[in-house]
Amino acid sequence: MLKTGGHIDYSTPVISVRGVSKSFGDLHVLRGVDMDLFKGENLVVLGRSGTGKSVLIKLISGLLEPDIGSIEVLGEQVDELDDKALRQLRLKIGFSFQNSALYDSMTVRENLEFPLVRNKRNLSRAAINREVEDVLDAVGLLHTINQMPSELSGGQRKRIGIARTLILRPEIMLYDEPTAGLDPITCIEINGLINEVQEKYKTSSIIITHDLACAKSVGDRIVMLLEGRFEREGSFDEIFDTDDGRVKPFYDYNFIK
C-alpha cells in the first residue's frame, strides 16, 4: 500500500540539501545532490549499493562533511555548527544504522539508557525506567529488556536500534537500509514499525533502501540516486514508469518479472 501523504506540510522543509558533492579519493560518490525533506514526510532514497545513499545521511547527521554544497537541518547549516551545537542538533535526529550498531557490552536496557542518561542528566531513575519501557513497548520488545544484543535476532536488533533513537524523541529519523538482511515477514514488521513511528512520534524520515517492497509501503515520495545524482523523483508508480535501463532492472528483480 502506497502512503497518501495527507499529513505532510509541504511548506516546511526540515532538511534542505543543495549542490552537495562528496568524493573519497578518486571515487566521486555524490555529484551535486539537491533534496528537500518536508515536515511529516517519509522520503525513500533508492539506489544501487555503493551509490552514496548512506553517505548522504551521514552528511546530513554531520558524521561526514561535504566537499561542496550546503546542508540545512531544522533551519541550521550543519557544516557551520561547532561541536556543541552539532551535538544539540543531533538530539533532534534519530539515526538507525544498517547493522543496528547496538553497544555489544551493554544490555538492551543499558543501550536505551545510554543516550538518555547522557543528554537528560536531571531525569530521575524512575523516569528513565519509564522512558525505556515506553519505547521498548512501542517496538514490541519489552521482554528483551535484560538481554544482551548478541542474544537477539536480526529483526529484534533493528527494532532495538530504532527504539534507542526514539528515546530522545527526535523530529527527524534517518533509516539506513532498515530491512537489509531480514526475512520477508520481519521486513513487513519493520516497514509497519517505520509507519507507526511516523504516526506516533510525528517524525519526518529519510529511508535509505534498495528494497522496493519497503519503499512502496513506507514512502510518501521516492527519489532515485543514479550516478551520484537524484535523477528520478515521484510516487512509486511514477518512478518505475520508465524504460530507463538503469531503473527497470530494480523493479523487475524485486517483483520477479
Binding site: R90, F97, A101, F114
Partner: peptide, 17 residues
Amino acid sequence: SMKVTEQIDAMEVSGTN
C-alpha cells in the same frame, strides 16, 4: 570492533562525545 560496527558513530549521533 566498535569502530567497524558503527558503534562509535552511533554514540556520536546520539549526542555523546
